[in-house]
Design a protein around this nucleic acid. Structure first.
Lengths: 344, 344
DNA sequence: ATTGGCGCTCCGTCCCGGCGAGTGCTGGCG
DNA sequence: CGCCAGCACTCGCCGGGACGGAGCGCCAAT
């Protein structure tokens, strides 16, 4: 009677599955009566109730109050996604549509559109962690805007472009600017800023002092530009969560959630953490360890460039979400993003 | 008795002012009793009621239901901001703080931070229309990413940077790329893409065909990059509106509002429209002509570069907002943005 | 082991009445 | 004629009580 703490016979699993599916479908607590019809098993409501009582004891389901039906707990969802869920992969047509939505013009657009696609397809919030950059640059360029005002343009190793305005102490001529850029491009492309700064002191003693100063200023600005835009998380369609009744009933919860969205760093930690695993990963309710998310699930997948993981995509929605749909969407989006970035 | 349709004697104005101020302060309908204490006038509630009845007839105030106090109508607010309101300008300290929050590293950051500052200071939604660009470019550059894959970098006349990936049919050598960039920079910097495309056909017949093809491709991509990023509106802190009780009670209204935020173009029209006027402009409730905004006010001000209006900043909040604070904030932000952009 | 039946618990809804706030009106006063 | 005290009236906002429905747990019968 008491040693079924771990075991879960087939019947119980079937019923749990039916219950979760039903609850996901219409959001109402599921009663024994409804379950007896749905499950496919030929059992009376009374028998079902016994099983449900067991499931409740084991912590898979719970009743919101004495006489409502049962609702899956976080643990129930966990078991569901781990062993009961059957995901049907997206068909070709859907994948093509999805791919068509990605804007490949440049990295920023790509990331933004990926996030947007996730939110559109799931009608929840889409998140994408921007790709980690390697430390160096591929190309650097100066452009004179005004007397003592330069525009620094910097192409990262990944092929996206940063820019920054630099104030200088003296006015450099266009040819000086070209020269400085050439030196940097020819000798130091691909090195980390840290490294360059060390080497430049030693190697360029023969240069005029003002040139060295220009270059150090440029390197500082470049370093800052790259590190500042380092890792960020792009969130789309947070507004969709307003339309989710599970969440929009708790106005306060909702506010906490949106506050979390503003504090990017916290979210970043969670998503970064998940980029160590491979494949789709799911955090249900408090598993994420973030209180504002305790009625939410986060479905994530890492994406890569040339086989190296550089970021994470994901969806944030209510625990009561259609996992069998969301999971493949996140999975495919990560793969499409990987391949779009790898062609660079 | 009936010909005060337009006139509004001093007493009525004073009472209207007191009523609006009180209502803005605590959001409760204001009764005659409260008003008699607040107004400063030595009048009994009964007399006040007479005046209030007149104000109601004239459409300045209304009662939510038979026996609540009165609430300003859109027309009431309008009269209030037009003739009763006394704005106190921000003091130096606040202006300095505000200025410190603007991130001048580049145009995108500047615009984003301006929008953010607006939302932080007012605790409503901040909006900024990105600066209109002139049609041409200042500098153009090609960078080879892979065999048939180029990165096009384009600095606009305003000094900000666009980038775009171009697929080419043949593989160009680095020196060819430099040559093409030089031709474009030396001959056509500052011209509109339209104009260049016309001239290039005529003037460059002597060039090899593949060079012309490269340049036309670059021009097309550049044109697209510039026109696509043409005018957009950056919204910050829309979430703040969740915390505004006036709005968060009507879940549906709120959703409509956020939908509006997603449809940037509609908002853009409104804000563009307002950039024709000069100085701070206010749209109260339905004055904006947008149904989702009928319980909101929009406070806007145009900003300029070198004396030419190029965009608009603004705040979107509930009609019940502290206009005397919001107006100077929007005003100053527009001015700071103007001066930050003009120094380029 | 399964099941029908019974009693119980709890939620959601509706209805009702009291309370408080605020109004409109009237008649009296300076 | 302007002002004001008083009064009756109208609503919205609770809080309490009744009712129907859904669902459960338990038990006895099969």
């Amino acid at each position: 009677m008491a040693n079924e703490t771990q075991a879960l016979n087939e019947r119980a699993q079937l019923l749990l599955k039916a219950l979760v599916e039903r609850y996901i479908a219409d959001g109402q607590p599921v009663g024994s009566r409804a379950l007896s019809k749905l499950s496919g098993l030929d059992l009376s409501p009374a028998s079902i109730r016994n099983v449900m009582a067991d499931l409740e004891d084991m912590g898979f389901i719970a009743s919101p109050h004495t006489s409502a039906g049962r609702v899956p707990t976080a643990r129930g969802y966990r078991f569901f996604v781990d062993t009961l869920l059957t995901v049907k992969p997206l068909d070709r047509v859907e994948i093509n549509q999805l791919e068509g939505q990605l804007q490949v013009e440049n990295t920023q657009k790509l990331v933004a559109s990926a996030s947007h696609v996730l939110s559109e397809l799931t009608r929840f919030a889409g998140v994408v962690v921007t790709p980690r950059r390697s430390a160096g640059f591929r190309h650097i360029e100066f452009l004179k805007l005004a007397e003592k005002r330069l525009l620094l343009i910097l192409v990262t190793a990944e092929g996206d472009v940063q820019n920054r305005i630099i104030q200088t102490e003296k006015s450099y001529s266009p040819s000086e600017l070209v020269e400085a850029a050439n030196i940097l491009n020819q000798n130091y492309a691909g090195c980390s800023f840290e490294e360059i700064r060390r080497r430049i002191q030693a190697e360029l003693r023969q240069l005029r002092e003002d040139m060295t100063r220009l270059m150090t200023a440029a390197l500082a600005a470049g370093d800052q530009a790259v590190s500042e835009s380092a890792e960020d998380v792009v969130i789309s369609g947070g507004i969709n969560l307003l339309g989710v009744d599970d969440l929009s009933s708790n106005m306060n919860k909702l506010r906490e959630l949106f506050n979390l969205f503003e504090h990017r760093t916290t979210l970043l930690q969670l998503l970064d953490h998940s980029s160590r695993a491979q494949g789709v990963q799911i955090f249900i309710g408090n598993e994420a360890g973030l209180q504002p998310l305790d009625e939410c699930s986060v479905v994530t997948a890492p994406y890569e460039v040339d086989g190296r993981v550089v970021g994470t995509v994901g969806v944030i929605g209510p625990t009561r979400m259609a996992y069998e749909r969301v999971i493949p969407i996140v999975d495919i989006t990560a793969k499409l993003l990987s391949s779009a970035l790898t062609q660079r």
